[in-house]
């Protein structure tokens, strides 16, 4: 069952993870997150793997957490489980390459950002749309945005809640390369093969150095923000936002 929603393909020196729920633009539900978590666990200790490609089948890379199922996810729409799994993805010992087409939105955008390298199809739209539905971006996800694109670009992404196109994404440094949509898989494989041809011990230790250089800023105290996040997620506005989204109408905000 999980195999249908999430596929793991072994190649001689790298592994491809594929989100496979194309009819829902690969929006993340519980079985997919469990499958992703298991797939990460299966490669963490495997020394023969030198790179990983993460891609999505169909028109979109990933449209985020499935809001229709959000209530059933661990902690309602509290993305705690998402944070834990993405952190694990970020700390995989080998380079991870995201191949993104169509849409990489909210949780899907963060999924791509937690990889080391990002190749985009020219039809990609990337964005954090959560402010539209009255939810919030957790502290660690904001930190990830700042790590990749800086404070000024992060402000644009989270406050406007408006996705950016591939051309703007590469300007911001959000993706490393933009290719025609038909060439996306080919480009991701070229990057994986290039990485996998390099010395494995060098790669693993370089990734440790790179993570260490930036991880200290993740350690800033933010318990108060976590608490505030809990309040926002359980607010009336958040319920209204999700209801309006599912009913395809504009939400009415009350700031409560």
């Amino acid at each position: 069952m999980a195999d249908e929603l999430f596929k793991v393909e072994r190649h001689p020196s790298y592994v491809t993870f594929t989100l496979n729920r194309p009819e829902k633009r690969n929006s993340l539900n519980e079985p997919m997150l469990v499958a992703l978590d298991n797939a990460i666990a299966s490669v963490e200790q495997d020394k023969s793997i030198r790179a990983i490609i993460l891609r999505g089948n169909g028109r979109a890379f990933c449209s985020g957490i499935d809001l229709a199922e959000a209530e059933r996810l661990e902690g309602g729409h509290n993305p705690v489980s998402l944070e834990r799994i993405f952190k694990r993805l970020e700390h995989l010992p080998v380079p991870v390459i995201a191949a993104m087409q169509g849409a990489a939105l909210a949780g899907g955008c963060e999924l791509g950002l937690h990889c080391d390298l990002r190749v985009a199809a020219d039809d990609l739209r990337m964005g954090m749309t959560v402010a539209r539905v009255g939810l919030i971006v957790p502290y660690n996800f904001i930190r990830k945005l700042i790590e990749i694109i800086g404070t000024a670009n992060t402000a644009q992404i989270i406050f406007t809640a408006e996705p950016v196109d591939a051309a703007r994404a590469i300007q911001m440094g959000m993706v490393h390369e933009v290719v025609p949509a038909a060439k996306l898989d080919e480009a991701a494989v070229a990057w994986a093969e290039k990485v996998a041809a390099n010395a494995p011990l060098s790669l693993r230790t370089m990734k440790m150095s790179l993570r260490r250089s930036v991880d200290s800023s993740n350690d800033a105290w933010h318990d108060d923000i976590v608490e505030l996040g809990r309040q926002v997620r359980s607010s009336k506005d958040a319920k209204e936002g999700i209801r309006a989204f599912l009913e395809k109408r504009k939400p009415v905000w009350k700031a409560e």
Binding site: L117, E147, G150, G173, N198, L210, S213
Partner: peptide, 15 residues
């Protein structure tokens, strides 16, 4: 990392 940020450092080093 100071000059080009972690994401671009990854591109330069891993590739």
């Amino acid at each position: 990392v100071e000059t080009v940020g972690p994401a671009n450092t990854a591109e330069i080093m891993y590739l």
